[in-house]
Simulated assay, not measured.
Amino acid sequence: MNDIMYPADEIEKSFATLDRTPAPLGHPMVNGVFLSASDPEGINLGWIGAWNENVRRENGRVFLDKVIDVEIANRSEGGKAVLSAIDKGEPVHTSTGLLAQLEAANGDVSYSHIARDLVFDHDAILLNEKGAATPEQGVGMMVNSKGEKEEIAVINSSLSDIDQEIDWAGTRLVEALRRKDNLSVWERMKSAIIEAISSEREPVANRKEADMTVSKEQFDELSAKVNTLSEGLDKIGETIANAVQTAVKPLTDNLATIQNNQKAKDDAELAGLVEKIVKANILDEDSAKELTLNAARKLAEKATPGKAAPLNGAFTGNADKPAFKLPEGDK
């Protein structure tokens, strides 16, 4: 193919390297140069969520499965085109991309090189171009050596998505069964209540003993469940209150300690201020003890040396006034 000879023994040694390789749409190429389909640029150019799997060799021919993640394929126009081609059921061309050591051919042969030490990089899907080997030769998607259609196998999601779907389905099932059970209890309870209060129920004398026995057992069972439910509801408030109290207890204890320490500090300061006020003869001891801390702080400022109100500097006494004289004859 392409003027290169690929010997059977070289293919035998290397075909397994096709397993888990990308299956891009076309061979990735930048500026006329082929790229590996696993190269970041190659992934951007050709990735449509398809890869090669289950590679095997039978009777000298290599077979593999193309696995396509439908969700990923539907995110690109190329992926959608591949899915559309598969839906049509017509053969699709494919073409391998590989690395090899090229050995010059000698002699009168129809090829110029011989490929050695093959390492397969990808097996591309071709829509608007033909591969070196064609579906007519049994090479491509959905064909075998007889030209018959092969089985189509695609996947819709990854294993992690499947696990999530199973979890979701299981959760919904458990929830539905729980609702059904609760509904069954309510339906039986409702029937018993209706039967108990209905004015149109048949007289007790006309009821069969077996019916009465079953009805009583059902009613007793429902009554027990109602009592249990009522007791649980009665305790909900208590349970919540206890939980909240337990959760905030460390906070309230810490706050109480802080408050107690601050009160002791304030009491000591007030006692000192009272003593200071009494010594300064501003108030007697009993009156001073009735002061609040803020009031005591204000009054204590007046007892601090150097804090007394200054004298009026404009007052000069009688120095500038004439001396006062008594009337004559007076002393």
Rank of each mutant, 00 (worst) to 15 (best):
T292Q: 12
E58G: 00
A16I: 13
R116F: 07
A280S: 01
K88I: 11
I48V: 15
K279S: 05
D69I: 11
K235Q: 11
T252I: 01
I11W: 09
G329F: 00
E150S: 12
I43A: 06
I48F: 08
A247G: 07
S158F: 10
L99D: 09
I155D: 04
I4D: 02
D320W: 14
L299H: 11
S76D: 02
S36Y: 01
K249Q: 09
A73P: 00
T228L: 14
D65G: 04
S95T: 09
E53C: 14
V154N: 06
L18M: 12
M29V: 07
A308H: 03
P7W: 06
D9P: 06
D121V: 01
L222S: 12
S184E: 13
K263F: 02
N182L: 12
E41K: 14
S95M: 12
K216W: 04
L273G: 02
N74P: 04
N227Y: 10
F219C: 14
A303G: 05
A319C: 11
G107V: 00
G140C: 10
R297M: 08
N59L: 02
D286G: 14
G46Q: 10
A37G: 01
I282E: 06
M141R: 14
A224S: 15
S76W: 01
T292N: 12
N261L: 06
G317H: 03
D39L: 00
D167C: 03
L255E: 07
E301H: 06
F315C: 14
K279M: 04
G317I: 02
T213A: 10
L98M: 10
G170Q: 15
G147H: 07
T21F: 02
V82R: 01
L18F: 05
M1N: 03
A192T: 13
E209Y: 13
G131R: 00
V143K: 05
D19S: 11
N254P: 05
D117W: 09
Q259I: 04
S230K: 14
S112F: 12
V226Q: 15
E148R: 07
A105I: 01
T239Y: 08
K249A: 12
T94F: 07
R201C: 02
N254G: 09
L283G: 04
A16N: 08
S191C: 06
N54T: 13
E175F: 11
L251R: 07
K302F: 02
E200C: 05
G138I: 04
R57S: 06
I68K: 01
L99Y: 07
K130V: 03
A264Y: 08
E275C: 03
G46M: 04
G107T: 00
V226G: 14
H113C: 05
E238G: 13
K289G: 11
V274A: 01
K321D: 13
Q262A: 08
A16K: 13
N312A: 09
V174N: 15
A105Q: 01
F15P: 11
A264E: 10
P322E: 06
A295H: 14
F63M: 04
K13D: 07
V274R: 03
P24T: 00
D3W: 03
N294R: 14
R20N: 12
L251D: 10
R207L: 06
G97F: 10
T228W: 14
N206P: 09
A37Y: 00
L293S: 15
V62M: 00
A309Y: 04
G107D: 01
I11Y: 08
